[in-house]
Design a protein around this nucleic acid. Sequence first.
DNA 1: GCCGTTTTCGGCCCGACTGTTTTCAGTCG
Length: 569
Amino acid sequence: MDPANEPVVSLLNEIADILELTGSDRFRPIAYRRAARTVEALPKPISEYIRDGTISELPGIGEAISQKIKEFVTTGRLAYLDNLKKGIPESLLELLKLQDLGPKKVGRLFFELKITNMDELEKACLEHRVQKLKGFGEKTEQKILQSIRFYRGSRRFLLSEGDEVAERIIEILRPHVSRIDAAGSLRRRKETVGDIDIIASSPRPSEVMDRFTSIDDIETIIAKGETKSSILLKSGIQVDLRVVEDNCYGAALLYFTGSKDHNVQLRNISIDKGMKLNEYGLFRRESEELLSCSTEQEIYATLGLDYIVPELREARGEIEAAASRRLPKLVELKQVRGDLHVHTNWSDGSSPLEEMIEAAKQLHYEYIGISDHSPSEKIANGLSVERMKEQIKRIARLRDKESEIHVLCGSEVDILPDGSLDYPDEILSQLDFVIASVHSRFNMEKQEMTKRLLNAISNDYVTAIGHPTGRQLGRREAYSFDADTVFREAAEKGVLLEINGSPERLDLNDALVMEASKFKCKFLLSTDAHHRTSLLNMKYAIAMARRGWLEAEAVANTLSFSRFSKLLN
DNA sequence: GCCGTTTTCGGCCCGACTGTTTTCAGTCG
């Protein structure tokens, strides 16, 4: 999400929360939440949509909500919300984030027990006052206490962390199932995952559930049923398992892959066509006759749609594209022919040059580019001019010996605060390529940072901008810069934009890839590997590229070496 | 509050699981 939009997303969600608590029309909060999701997915600050008058064209944002956003953005306040909040303590809303506590229950806790915040709720549970309320009981009270503990330690997880957990659990369950896959946001390759959804088919579901709920690092079993169970692992990550009959596996996989908005759109199309879609299949609405369910492909086809890969299922126009046969032919991992953002133990990597080259050969790459750090990165043992010259010679010798792979010598060169580069032209001119990155002064003013990046782009030696926003998931926000201006200039000058596949970066992300594509930018997929095994992280760069609707044509390192090297000159 | 190849008004995805009920409301995904 563009950091500038965060307050608007919170605003819309807060309105939805209060509307739910006070329990008026049940669809109004849904509308606000949908609008919040739309704003969250925007690649640019909402103020730009207000300025060019396109705000009310955004899905789920109509006249009323766009007026409210305008008021909030221009004045920093919203009279409607101030009014709504009267009599509702701010701290009450946080209780809605607790698992198994929704607006109805929170409302009753507030009105009947005068509970206004998490600590008071915890106390009331410990004193067994909550179980005395009608409709609440002993178990509810225990669940609330558990939810509070979970909430206090919860966070979203990196896609790579999710992969690791899912792969392990799938291996444990595999002997008991016919088919099994990770679904949900993990399968859609979102940059972070909140929990893990696994879907399986088996003739003996209870056996699968028994195995699942006896995995050794379980903190608690949240729910256990014949077809659906949830566990919380000690690591804090929740895993949901759904077991279905094998003949309807496709329908279940489709349903549990989401996204929610994509599913809603599919269901609406089904209704329009006199059909009904649920996790058991696609049915004729009147007769309940089963039309299709065994594979996702078949279900999309029955709905008159081309197959939509999971990475695109975000309700960003993919359904319209599928209906009119205009889906992009997305770039694939096997089309990537080289990796240029690779560190070695010359700077802060942990593998020697030779090992990185060897690892690239095992991936059947045609080329690999070495790009250690420049002098300013003292903490990363950046290469001085002298050491850089030495590495250039060393790589030249290795290159001559190599018959299987082309070895390029480049550098990840710091973009200094004024936008100049961290090596003199004498060095830059000897390098095969330059990835220019910002590693310092992240808190510059937007205008200044934009100028800094534009300066770097205007340098003739620069091949690509590395991790263009500088964000690190869960740790550091993106620095502020005018993305459109930078993208336009990069496209103009033929400077590539990196899609950095390092799991804590994923930079550019999907939304910014889509935005940059509007300016016809070209991209460089890379891993920023600091160890030979990290070259495998190319799959995460691919994930962002595919979620950003990229075709191979827009990705420079899908080119053969001869064409790629022409691009470098 | 949003939205429209049957609608500018009347809909708005749909089923599983849990706990507290004794037939169902609340919550979740």
